[in-house]
Simulated assay, not measured.
Amino acid sequence: MRGTAFDLPKTELNGTFGQINTRAQDKNLSVSQTISPFQIGARRKVLMENVKAGELRLSQTRQEVTYSIRQSWNTMLYYMELNKVLEEQNKLMQQFVRSAELKFQTGETGSLENTTAKAKQQELQQQIKRNNALIEAEKLRLKALLQLDGDVIVSGTEQYTASVFATLQDSTALRQNSTLLLAEQQVNVAKAERRAEGSLLMPDLTAGYFIQSLTGNQDFNGVSTYYDNTLRFQGFSVGISVPLFWGASSARVKAAKTNIEVQQANAAYTRTQLVSSFEQEKKQLETFRSMLEYYTGTALPNANTISGNATKAYQNGDISYVEYVQGLETALAIRINYIDAINNYNQAVINLQYLLNL
């Protein structure tokens, strides 16, 4: 659209024929062009500011797509990691089922322990199926986002770990956020539109050329000469158009001024919202980082100890199946909470990357 800045009105061609000057038949041909010199620069400024706004919209879309891809990828790995833990738990439950069946067949225990073991294992299998469905959903989402022809295949060596991210101390880097840049650019667009509306109050210029016939005798330097109706007499015209009735244009200028104030308020609001979101996400990140340190340093080793000791104790007959199941579920809950902590931490990182346009 930048090429439309120099947009002149249509060139006017006129022809007049008949008894123009005398009873003789004459003709007059003219061409004229109107130009609005003050509007050309103002229109070009509006177009250039809109070009910048369009580029920022492209950057904003790219930022949002990147955010969606990161979110979907993290969610997919999260459910895959959950299934790894559930599969390990399922193996323990399979051993529990075999042991419970053997005890039931030998009459050592009643049917309650056997039924409980099978119910717990079936519950795990349903959770795994549910997570597999969610994994496939995220793969389809990634396929659409990346516009892939084939399926999304995750490497078997892919590990679900906390993302490496250095927390920034202040929000100055938010200046690179496309949403904020676009909101600020809309102020520039509004100012350019205000100038464009104001240029409508400036005069327009018109220039023209004409050629005509004057049939009859013409005296020039005391000599009388007869001219037929051939086009031979020519000249030019100039004109200026001024807005005498400027009420409507003045109202549009006032509306454009109001729009500047609206866009400035919107930019300030966007900046405030982004700063607030940045501070919240930064605090969330520190909280989840502390939780990860707790789980890796204390909780996970305890979970492994609980699971291992409970299995040995149950196999040796030192504890009942109720205590065994409680031990396994406690260890499982710790491991799942650890994976949730990684997920929450990574989500905070993804949100900060989006806010900082990284």
Rank of each mutant, 00 (worst) to 15 (best):
T161I: 12
G150H: 01
L168C: 01
Q159Y: 01
L231T: 07
G198H: 14
N221A: 03
T167P: 10
L181R: 15
L182N: 08
Y227C: 04
N188P: 05
T167H: 09
G156W: 06
L168A: 05
G208M: 05
Y209G: 13
N229T: 02
L168H: 14
F233K: 10
Q169G: 09
Q212V: 09
T215L: 00
D228C: 02
A162F: 04
Y209S: 10
E197L: 13
S178M: 05
A190G: 11
D219N: 06
A173S: 14
A190E: 05
A196C: 11
D151Q: 07
D204G: 04
D170S: 11
T167Q: 12
T161R: 14
Y227L: 01
S171N: 11
F165N: 09
S171G: 04
E158T: 13
G156P: 06
G156D: 12
L174C: 09
L205I: 13
N221F: 04
G198P: 01
R194I: 02
A173K: 09
A173L: 09
P203A: 08
L174F: 02
R232W: 03
V223C: 01
R195Y: 00
F165C: 00
G216N: 07
L168F: 08
E193P: 04
A183I: 06
N217D: 02
G222W: 09
L201M: 12
T179Y: 00
T157E: 15
A173G: 13
N177D: 02
M202I: 08
L180D: 06
A192L: 05
T225W: 00
R195D: 12
V223K: 12
V164G: 00
V152D: 00
Y227P: 03
K191V: 02
K191R: 07
N221I: 07
S171P: 03
R195V: 03
S163N: 14
L181C: 09
S155R: 11
V154M: 03
R195K: 11
G208W: 13
D204W: 01
F220H: 03
A207C: 00
T172M: 14
N188Y: 01
G150P: 01
Q186Y: 09
S199W: 04
S199Q: 06
R232F: 10
M202S: 11
S199C: 06
E197H: 02
A162P: 08
G156N: 05
G222F: 07
N217F: 06
F233G: 06
G216Q: 03
T161H: 11
T230P: 03
F233E: 08
G150Y: 01
L201A: 08
L182K: 12
A166E: 06
F233L: 12
I211D: 08
D219Y: 10
L174T: 09
T179D: 07
L200F: 11
V187F: 03
Q159R: 11
T215C: 06
V189L: 00
F165L: 05
F220D: 10
G198W: 09
S171W: 07
D151M: 04
R175K: 14
N188Q: 15
